[in-house]
């Protein structure tokens, strides 16, 4: 078991109507690894994350996380999406931070974090509060635990959202362009939280436009182009010695 990858994506195909967004994506991740997915808009980066945690249905391929085939089974050679009650269980192995934070506006920062602990993991209230406070402290938001999202800056909201996801103790954290909606001066506070989680050994899959950050924090980089993995490798190779021409021309427009 321990030599198997934590996450294995095989031949993932996803279409929105007639538009094929993912045209057969394959890669795997080891426990404790940090991978950043880069690529131009529309190359399918975000869709990969949303297929992994089953927010999207996909037409072909499979995602295996920690030995569990996520979301689908094969019945008499027919591929069937599992019922929502099972999807909920599978989904609990992943945590996700969104571009738009998506905090619950009617709850304080603390309750945003405790909600899943109490209502999904059935933790008792005191334990949930202790867990939530530990994670809020970790992202530097403990002092604002009684604030509502509308009373927090974008960077603060994103840090609470990361605490909310990670407090659920997922096997794999997914970060979907978590700094894209932030003012430039708020980007660093969020990136430094992610970096410290990486240092802790959390397995993380990021979609990002922050190339310097991706190079700094990742073990490997996946370059997506037109729905397929065009190139995958360690940051030095991807950024300094790209093999594919498309990657080279994509990197020309970016600075690291």
């Amino acid at each position: 078991m321990s030599t198997d990858p934590l996450l294995k994506i095989e031949s993932l195909h996803k279409s929105f109507g007639t538009v094929e967004v993912l045209k057969g994506v394959d890669f795997s991740m080891n426990q404790g690894e940090v991978i950043s997915i880069i690529g131009s808009s529309g190359s399918g980066k975000t869709t990969i994350l949303r297929c992994i945690n089953l927010l999207e249905e996909y037409q072909q391929g499979s995602v295996t996380l920690d030995g569990v085939v996520m979301g689908y089974k094969t019945d008499n050679n027919r591929r069937v999406r599992l019922p929502e009650s099972v999807l909920v269980k599978h989904r609990s192995m992943t945590g996700m931070a969104f571009q738009q934070f998506n905090l619950f506006p009617h709850m304080t920062a603390l309750r945003n974090v405790t909600l899943g602990l109490i209502k999904a993991l059935n933790m008792d209230k005191d334990e949930a509060i202790a867990t939530a406070e530990r994670w809020l402290e970790r992202v530097g938001m403990l002092a604002r635990k009684e604030h509502y999202p509308s009373q927090l800056s974008g960077g603060q909201q994103q840090r609470v959202a990361i605490a909310r996801a990670i407090a659920m103790n997922p096997r794999l954290m997914l970060f979907d362009e978590v700094t894209s909606a932030l003012d430039p001066e708020l980007v660093n506070e969020v990136l430094s939280v992610i970096k410290s989680l990486a240092t802790d050994g959390m397995t993380m899959l990021l979609v990002t436009h922050e190339m310097a950050f991706a190079a700094d924090v990742s073990n490997r980089i996946v370059f997506m182009n037109e729905g397929v993995v065009e190139e995958i490798g360690p940051p030095e190779q991807i950024f300094k010695a790209p093999k594919s021409e498309r990657l080279a021309s994509f990197l020309k427009g970016t600075t690291i």
Partner: peptide, 30 residues
């Protein structure tokens, strides 16, 4: 209610029933 609210609720493993009770209805009622 923005669609992201349901996705966030799914991402913390809430069932749909609990999503309605704790996330959607409190916002809708207000």
């Amino acid at each position: 209610i923005p669609k992201g609210q349901i996705e966030a609720a799914k991402s913390i493993s809430l069932t749909f029933r609990k999503t309605v009770i704790y996330v959607l209805l409190p916002q809708a009622l207000r």
